Simulated scan of single mutants.
Amino acid sequence: MQDELPVSVVTLPTGTGKTLSYLPVIYDGQHRVTSSAISFSNTFSRHPDTPRPLVPIKPMVFKPRRMRAQVSAPATYRAMCRRVLAREQAGRHERRREHSSARRVRDAEARRAVLLRCGNRCENPGCFKADLPYRTSAGEPLLQVDHIDNHATGGRDYPSAMIALCPNCHSNKTYGADRLALTETFRKEAARLHDEFEQRP
């Protein structure tokens, strides 16, 4: 069976180019090598007629595996849109979930105090753009007052435990990979800003 399979010879330069490796290979018709033999010539550049002894290599066995085609991002996007449209046409976009929960009520004056203290700037000391050009519909800076510790689980609702953040820094504190370290940084910064602002005349 192997005698009927196609044979190719691959030449591989090695080292500084003085050594060439000849690799005759037999394919099984599915781009897989079934057997091969290899020969070396350490003096090929000087003696091209030097006999090259063959060193047999045992046949390599490959397990069959499925090949996955690479799908482009636009094609994936179109497929996702088709599935969403199918669910919409089936009426599944009108589904509702019932929520019944009780949340702690935030102190509105504590939030206003933090916005007063921040001076319209993000209070993250490492913010890349603390002076935000964005404004809310009311004309105020687009800042979000966040509790250092989650308010819903008992975090203190007091300005020294709260910090004004731009949307990017707020998202980083909530979802970022370094959110734990960032939380401790904000804890110290909020306490420092609180003490400093209280001492002003």
Rank of each mutant, 00 (worst) to 15 (best):
P48D: 03
E94L: 14
S72E: 13
E88C: 11
P59A: 02
I38A: 03
F44R: 11
S100I: 07
H194S: 08
V61Q: 12
T34L: 13
Q199R: 13
R103M: 05
A130T: 00
P167Q: 12
R95A: 15
F40E: 11
R103H: 09
A177Q: 08
T153G: 00
L85S: 11
L20E: 08
F62A: 09
A130S: 04
R200C: 05
E198N: 06
T34I: 15
I38S: 05
T14S: 15
M162E: 06
C81Q: 03
K129H: 01
K173Y: 09
A181N: 07
L23M: 03
S39Q: 14
I57N: 09
I57V: 14
F44G: 03
P6N: 13
N42S: 06
S21E: 12
S8I: 09
A102G: 06
R121S: 10
G139T: 01
H47V: 14
D131T: 03
A161R: 02
P133M: 00
R200L: 15
E123C: 08
R32D: 10
Y77R: 13
A86E: 14
G154S: 02
R78C: 00
A110D: 05
P53N: 14
V61W: 11
D3K: 08
E189Y: 01
L116W: 03
C127K: 01
E109P: 11
I163P: 04
H170G: 11
R96I: 13
P56C: 06
I148T: 04
E184D: 14
R92G: 00
C118R: 08
Y27A: 05
P167Y: 13
E94K: 13
D195M: 01
L132M: 09
L23P: 00
D28E: 05
H194I: 00
L132H: 04
A191C: 00
D195W: 01
F128D: 02
